[in-house]
Each structure stands twice: as C-alpha cells, then as structure tokens.
Design a protein around this nucleic acid. Structure first.
Length: 787
DNA sequence: GTGGCCCCTGTTTTT
DNA sequence: CAGGGGCCAC
C-alpha cells in the first residue's frame, strides 16, 4: 500500500482520480502543464504495481519516439527493472510496424518490408504521373500524394475512392497504381502502417481477438491528434477488455493536416457513453499572466470543452510584445535579449525561440552566429533528408530488399558509374518481361555474367557495368549474413568509393562526409539488432526525436516541435499575418482555428516570461514586403502586455495624422512609428537600403492615458519591474556618464561611450577592453562604476 | 552519358 | 533568393 501511496504522492485530487480510475474507458482532458505525462506514467505503474497487471499486457501509445522513451525512463525509475523488455510502448507507427512484421503472412508484403518515407512516396507518385502521361503542373505530385495520404488516414481504399470530379478520378487511378507499386517493391508507406494494421485486424477476427485479448489495458497519449485509422485501431485493440485510457487536450490539436481530428474526443464520448471524464485544470508550469493571455487566445475557438486553467505561481511578469522594423531587427532583438540576459547570469538553456515555419530559423541562426551565442536547432534541415544519407540508406535498403526499385534507381548510378537512361529503360523492360524485380535481374547478371539469360538484353558496355554492380550487390548480401552491420557499412563505403565522391575537399564536402560518419556511428549502435531494425528505426525516427542533447544553450524550433516542452523564457517570433496564422489557412475557418491552437501551444510553453515578436516588413523571395500584425495579438488583453520596439504608445487616435494603409492597421491607429531603439545597429542591416523614412518627431505625450481608453485599470501586482501603462513613464535617472570606467561581470572593464534613456529604458554604450564595443540595457547589464 | 546552364517555382507544420 | 528539374552542348 505504501507503494501505491508514493505513486500518488504530490498529485492533486483529479490526477489521483485519473491514475487510480477503475476498469472501462477513461478520458482525461488535460490542459497544458497539468501533469499529463506524470498521470499517464503513474497510471501505467499503478496498473502493474497495485492492480497486478503484467507489463506486457499493457499497450501504451505515444506520438513521438521521444515521448515513448521518456515514459520508459520514468517507468524504470518508478518500477525498477521490472519493466525491462517486452513492453508494448511506442508510437502508433512503430507499434503497427511491429504487429505487421509479426503477421506478415497475412499481408501482400514480406516481413522484411521497407518503409517508404515522405520523399519516397512523392517520388513514387511522380513516377506514376509520368507513366500515366499526366501534366505534373496540373497534378502536382505533392498534392496528389496528400490526397492519397488523407484517403489512407480515413481508411479509404483505391476502389472506394469517391469520384466526384475528374481530379478525384485521377487521384483514384494514381492511388491504385501506387499501391500496386508499393506491393511490387515489398514496401509499405507511413500511412499503410496504420491502414494495413486496421485492415488486418478487421479482416481477421482471430488475429483481432489475439491482440485484443493480450492487451488488458490500452493507454494513449495526445489523443486529440489521432486520425480515424488510429482511432479505429485503438477501438480494435481494446475491444476485448474494454480498458481504454485516453489523455489529451482538444486545444492542443495541431496535426489536422496529417488527418488528426480533435473531434475524436467527442466521438470517444459518444462511442463510450459510460466513459469517465476527468478534467485536469491546475497548471504547474506557467504564471497566471501567461495563462490569462493563452486563455484569451484560445477562448475564441468553438467546439471545445471550456477549461479554467489556473496556476498558483502568481501573476508574474507581463507579456512583452516587441515590434521590429524588419525581420533582421526581429532576429537581432531576440538574440540581443538572450545575450544580455545570459550576461546577467541567466542560463542559456532557459530560452526557447519558436516560429511557424522552418525557414524562419535562418535569420535567427545568422544572428546567433554573429553574436557568438551557441544554440541548438530542432529538426529543420533534416538529417535523414540529406542527399548523402539518402544515398547510403538506398544502398542498405537495396541490400535488405532487392525488390526496392526506388532505392535501386537511386543507388545504381551514385557515384556515377556509367549507367544512364538507356540502360535503365532496358533494365526495366527486361524486368517486366522476366516478371522479376530489377534487383533480381542485377543479381543474376552479377552471378552468372555473360552466362546469364538476361545478358543479351543489354549493350555490351551496359551489360558489363550492370553485372559488376550486381556482383557487388551479391557480395554485400552475403557479407550481411557473415559480418556485422558496421562492417557492411564500411564495405559499402569502400567498394563504392563514396568518400571520394562526396568529399571534394570543400567545406560542404567535409560536412557531407561527417554526416556519413554520423550515420556510420548510428550503424554501430545497431550492431546487435541488425539491418532491418536499423532501417526501420531510420524510417520511423523523426528528426524531432533526434533533438540535440541538452546543452544549456537556447533552443530554436517550430511551434509544432515545441509541443510537450517547457522553458522559463519563450520567444514566439514572426507574429504576423501570413506567417501565424499562415497564409494557407486564411480562407478556411477550421484551418484558422488550428493556427490559433498552434499559437496557444506556443504561449503555454512559457514558465515565466513570454516575448511575442514581430516585424513591420519581412524579406520574402528576396525583396521586402510590408507585414501586418497577427490577428491573434488583438485577442490578448492590453493590460497583460508590455510593448517595446519601434511602435510606441502615443495619445489616442484623433490627433494622429498617420493613415493606416491596410485595414488591419486600424489596430495600430493609436501607435506611430518612431525610430527603433537601434539596439541592433551592430547587426547586419538588410541588403537593400534600409528604412528611409521613419516618422520621427512626435514625442510620446505625457497625457497618454490608457485607462481613459479602456476604462480598465491595469493590475498593479505584477511581479515584474515593468511600469504599468496607465501612468506616464517616470523619469529614469541615467546611472552612467560618458567617460565612466565600468566593470561588467563577464566582460571585465570598459569605458562608457554614451548613456541615454529611450522608451523608458536606459541604454549604455561601452567599449570593453576585452570584447570591444557593446550596447547594453543598463537594467540588465549589472555594470559597476569604478570611477 | 555527363555536366552545366537556365528557368521556374515556391515556403506550413511531421509520424 | 535558392533549389530542383529540364534542356542542351560536349
């Protein structure tokens, strides 16, 4: 009993109710920071320790491998070694792959099937479009593939694909052929892992029974992000014992484009009318101000269970909204602010910078590099998407599965060995006539040489080259049986002269080679588990999962990648129309609602301090475009916000001669442009001539009174040092004078060049003996006057 | 068969 | 602006 008690130690009543819930279906709606992972893990441990359930009778599904690993680690901590081995804990995709490989006898593919990633899928579609003579401009491969993927996520098969338009008909035909080719290549794509599993269990009652009986308890994380196939799979797997424990939050559903449907939460309640529903509303992460801001944003959405998130952490600081002149200044602000905080002693690991699209990381990275602050980047330029990595994976896949034609086509002429279109067409023709895969033809040529019955099919030169390649492939295959995976890997590199091919001595060449070595290192880790496991891991492990080690430096990532994480200080950058919400979402209310949830996810990552950052114009496609503040900013009550940057508060609209150009700019009618605080001048300015005509001149009026406009008084009990907007900023006394000799905690001594007050902030320019010129915020810099 | 040049297009998010 | 694909000349 004491054992149970320590599982419940420190939990609130709702959390305890969830962890100890009885049999049947349980739906836990868990707001951000409400201890969701803890509940799930402790539930798992509770079932084993207090209910006597055997670990391998529990199925736990997460959305990322990282989440699965984390849960495993925590379980080990809670239960000791009891859980090692035999755990059914993983992502939907890995669990499905596991089931499918076990039950491959029932499938059109063999148990060593390869898993096609997104690039492969699109390449395959492109091939089919060519085969069907379809105009690739009219039918873009990405879009057709998207349609196929959506169909699969909704359990729609080619023959039942609705033909409402000619386009649908095209999709349906391509989809059918696509499936044929996958099968011929002994491969499944990502979506098939789910679809095939559902079909397998649906069409084989005995199998369904077997698995459903095995899993006495099914636990699911991030339930709001399940798609129909996943929902159905859960239903099947829990169909015998009926113990389904789902944890989620509609407000954090951000994978609609991947088929996720937060309405599965509603469906759950309908399908299981007896389900217990538990709300976790206490937030242990953020200050009340952060929660209030987040709630103001998410409350605009409909079709949700309203939640009253509360925190006992106090009001905290106001949200800082910084508006930069352009995206260069935006990035510079982020980095400068982090740098100054770090100089004042804040740990680098306390910061995260989030953005909507991966492309936005570029300017940020450049700013970080310039300032010399180390950072880590999650995802983005995908390791597994790199050319050299894909090349080598193609070799490995081909060895594991000679029927994998896509990999064959990639590997066969890389590095170039004189196999061109003509030879390839001949190979494909030969393959079709012989009713063998091209890989098998190659192997035959390699083994029998000119004695092969296929030899005469090719020109003398072509035949020789193909046979050589086939012989190499055959040797690798036998090496696979005799030696280890790392040895095989080395052998491939050696036989193909791959290093010479990619490492041309240039810096990029060097990078490419180190990527290869990184993959090689990974191969060593899989020495015991073998090639198939290695390949499966490569296919199912996402870049998000390969998050660089915690290194106490700021983290850069997309808002999607930020889900589930928390940081003391969070920057959300790019808060402009077209970026967040993204332009592809503006005309669809459902998409717009999802953008809002995405912003909500970002906001609720912050523990203490939240910076919202935008830019007045951004460089897109090489030239500048005016940018307009995100509509989501309007939803955050003014009294929660402290504004900084080029826009300053002036007296209310009527006296302003400034005419908003865009309708949306109405929001800013009470703001006017003033020169930026030029904290950032030492950073690169945009390549084009920079901002020409600031509307300088008008000073912030001392009559400014925000109360008069809203009739609300800002809360006075903020724990920050920020002055309430309601009162004119008090005169700050300058603490330093030009000529002062000062000492900085990390940069040592320096000479004050200039000191001035701007926007209520004291800014000091110092020439340090050690690091040269720095522009600092006096409040953060901790300068000590020596004389 | 290969390499280079030019044009075009395109920027969500990822298991 | 950048990367990819198509086309053309060796």
């Amino acid at each position: 009993m004491t054992e149970t008690l320590d599982l419940l130690n420190g939990l609130n009543p709702q959390q305890i109710q969830a962890v100890t819930a009885g049999l049947g279906q349980v739906l836990v709606l868990a707001g951000p920071g409400s201890g969701k992972t803890r509940v799930l893990t402790n539930r798992f441990a509770f079932l084993i320790r207090s209910m006597g359930v055997r670990p391998y009778s529990i199925l736990a599904v997460t959305f990322t491998n990282k989440a699965a690993r984390e849960m495993e680690t925590r379980l080990e901590r809670l239960l000791g070694e009891q859980v090692k081995g035999g755990l059914w804990l993983g992502t939907f995709h890995s669990i499905c792959a596991r089931i499918l490989r076990r039950e491959a006898d029932y499938l059109p593919v063999k148990s060593n099937f390869v898993i096609m990633d997104a690039d492969d899928q699109e390449a395959l579609v492109r091939r089919i479009l060519k085969e069907f003579n379809l105009d690739e401009k009219l039918y873009r491969a990405a879009s057709i593939h998207g349609a196929i993927s959506t169909a699969k996520n909704n359990l729609v098969l080619p023959k039942s694909y609705p033909a409402r338009s000619y386009r649908d008909e095209v999709v349906s035909r391509v989809y059918g052929r696509y499936q044929e080719l996958l099968e011929a290549n002994n491969s499944l794509d990502f979506d098939d892992l789910l679809l095939m599993s559902v079909r397998l269990l649906d069409e084989n009652p005995a199998l369904r029974q077997k698995y459903a009986q095995r899993f006495e308890h099914v636990l699911v994380d991030e339930f709001q992000d399940t798609n129909l196939a996943q929902y159905e799979l859960l239903r099947q797997l829990s169909s015998f014992h009926g113990n389904l424990f789902a944890v989620g939050d509609e407000d954090q559903s951000i994978y609609r484009w991947r088929g996720a449907d937060y309405r599965n939460v509603l469906r759950f309640e309908q399908d299981y009318p007896k389900a217990q529903k538990i709300l976790l509303e206490q937030n242990y992460r953020s200050t009340q101000t952060v929660l209030d801001a987040a709630r103001a944003v998410i409350d605009q959405n409909r079709n949700r269970t309203p939640k009253k998130l509360f925190s006992e952490r106090g009001r905290g600081e106001r949200v800082i909204l910084y508006e930069a002149a352009d995206d260069y200044a935006e990035a510079a602000f982020v980095v400068d602010t982090i740098q100054q905080n770090m100089a004042a002693g804040v740990a680098g690991g306390d910061f995260a910078v989030m953005y909507r699209t991966n492309g936005q990381s570029r300017l940020l990275e450049e700013a970080f590099l310039r300032s010399g602050v180390a950072y880590r980047l999650v995802g983005a330029q995908r390791f597994y998407g790199r050319r050299e990595i894909k090349d080598l994976i193609a070799y490995l896949r081909l060895i594991s599965n000679p029927a994998d034609e896509l990999s064959l086509l990639r590997a066969i002429n890389v590095p170039p060995r004189g196999i061109g279109d003509k030879t390839l067409v001949a190979l494909q023709l030969c393959s079709r006539q012989a009713n063998l895969s091209p890989g098998e033809i190659l192997l035959d040529l390699g083994q029998k040489g000119d004695q092969s019955s296929f030899w005469s099919f090719f020109s003398g030169r072509g035949a020789t080259i193909l046979a050589d390649f086939g012989a190499m492939l055959a040797e690798w295959q036998s090496a696979l049986e005799k030696t280890s995976l790392p040895a095989l890997f080395d052998r491939i590199l050696l036989d193909t002269g791959y290093q010479l091919y990619i490492d041309d001595g240039s810096e990029e060449g060097n990078d490419r080679w180190s990527n290869v070595q990184e993959l090689q290192r990974l191969a060593y880790e899989y020495e015991d588990r073998g090639l198939t496991a290695f390949l499966e891991n490569l296919a199912l492990v996402s870049d998000q999962d390969t998050l660089p080690e915690e290194s106490n430096v700021p983290t850069l990532m997309t808002l999607h990648a930020a889900k589930g994480l928390e940081f003391p200080q969070v920057f959300i950058s790019g808060l402009d129309e077209g970026l967040l919400p993204h332009s592809r979402s503006i005309d669809d209310p459902e998409e717009m609602a999802e953008e809002r949830r995405l912003f909500y996810v970002g906001l609720t990552r912050a523990r203490n301090r939240l910076y919202l950052v935008r830019a007045d114009r951004r460089s897109t496609y090489g030239s500048f475009q005016d940018s307009v503040p995100s509509r989501f900013l309007e939803d955050i009550p003014e009294e929660l916000i402290k504004r900084q940057g080029m826009k300053r508060y002036i007296e209310t609209s009527s006296t302003s001669d400034w005419n908003p150009r865009a309708e949306r700019r109405d929001y800013y009618s009470r703001w006017e442009s003033t020169p930026p605080p030029d904290l950032n001048l030492r950073h690169a300015m945009p390549p084009q001539n920079s901002k020409a005509n600031y509307r300088g001149g008008k000073k912030a009026s001392s009559k400014t009174n925000f109360e008069g406009e809203t009739g609300q008084s800002p809360k006075a009990d903020f724990g920050d040092e920020i002055e309430p907007l309601a009162k004119p900023a008090p005169e700050i006394q300058a603490s330093y004078k030009a000529g002062n000799r000062v000492r900085h905690p990390s940069w040592g001594e320096g000479l004050v060049i200039q000191d001035r007050i701007l926007d209520g902030e004291e800014i000091v320019d110092v020439a340090f003996d050690s690091v040269g010129f720095k522009r600092l915020l006096a409040a953060l810099a901790h300068l000590e006057i020596i004389r």
